[in-house]
Simulated scan of single mutants.
Amino acid sequence: MTAPDDQTAYWNSTGTTKTFGHPLNPAWTAGLARDAALLDYGCGYGRLAGELAALGFTDVEGVDVAPELVARARAEQPAARFTVLADPPRIGRPDAAYDAAFLFAVLTCVPDDAAQQALVAELHRVLRPGGLLQVSDYLLQPDERNRERYRRFEARYGRHGVFETSDGAVCRHHTRERLDGLFAPLFEPVDERELAVLTMSGRPAVATQLLLTRR
């Protein structure tokens, strides 16, 4: 059995109450022109797209699978554009349409290996050669609460780090080796950092952020 990669129903209901907080690293956007075409994939309610617009970027597009979240993003962040994905991970834009893309706390919501690979391939398609990809996501957590649920759900989903939350989401935490292997065929590493973040339920966690360039 593989973990489900379509959780639209969750994000249109329970997910609309969540708060997302992975921080943007402005130093990684400093070299981009203010009119660069930017993509926030899995934009949710538009927090990150709004931060990019506040930095002076004038061509920011957010895309998400959840119409309810996109409706909120349009209302709260009028300086950016937002689109509902009709056939995820497919983005209805031509090849090489964007100069940079942002994938913040999205892979944790796409727990299936093949679905993650398809998403990374689609980002590669829509980024121009040399375009930047910023990734922020959760590592495997060392605390006993997380270790217990990794063990509890490993047999059900067939991979370590996939688990169900108490309110109905299926999530995945990653080793660095998994993340590196996921991006290595299509992207070149530029920079990285680890940092403390809060989960969407407000618990402390460790995340990794990667700056990559499209091969």
Score class of each variant (00 low, 15 high):
107 L>I: 11
129 P>E: 09
63 V>Y: 02
129 P>Y: 07
68 E>F: 08
119 L>H: 12
154 E>H: 06
151 R>S: 12
151 R>N: 04
64 D>R: 07
139 L>M: 08
150 Y>D: 02
94 P>K: 05
152 R>F: 09
115 A>I: 00
89 P>Y: 12
81 R>V: 08
98 Y>M: 08
150 Y>R: 05
112 D>I: 04
82 F>T: 02
107 L>E: 01
85 L>I: 10
67 P>H: 12
68 E>C: 10
98 Y>H: 12
78 P>L: 03
137 D>I: 00
123 L>T: 09
88 P>E: 10
157 Y>L: 02
160 H>V: 11
66 A>M: 04
104 F>V: 03
94 P>S: 10
108 T>M: 13
159 R>I: 11
101 A>S: 05
103 L>H: 03
140 L>N: 11
137 D>Q: 04
109 C>S: 14
75 A>Y: 06
66 A>V: 05
153 F>T: 00
84 V>C: 11
86 A>W: 09
86 A>V: 15
97 A>R: 03
66 A>Y: 11
105 A>N: 14
158 G>C: 06
164 E>W: 00
145 R>N: 13
76 E>S: 12
109 C>T: 12
101 A>E: 08
88 P>W: 06
63 V>R: 01
136 S>Y: 08
87 D>L: 10
91 I>W: 03
118 A>G: 07
83 T>R: 15
142 P>C: 14
127 L>T: 09
63 V>Q: 00
76 E>R: 14
161 G>D: 10
115 A>N: 03
63 V>D: 00
101 A>I: 12
134 Q>W: 15
91 I>R: 01
116 Q>A: 14
124 H>A: 15
86 A>H: 13
65 V>H: 04
75 A>Q: 12
95 D>I: 05
101 A>R: 05
105 A>M: 04
132 L>N: 12
129 P>I: 06
135 V>A: 02
71 A>E: 13
135 V>Y: 08
73 A>H: 10
136 S>W: 03
73 A>F: 06
63 V>E: 02
118 A>P: 07
68 E>N: 15
99 D>R: 04
85 L>M: 13
146 N>C: 14
160 H>N: 14
143 D>K: 14
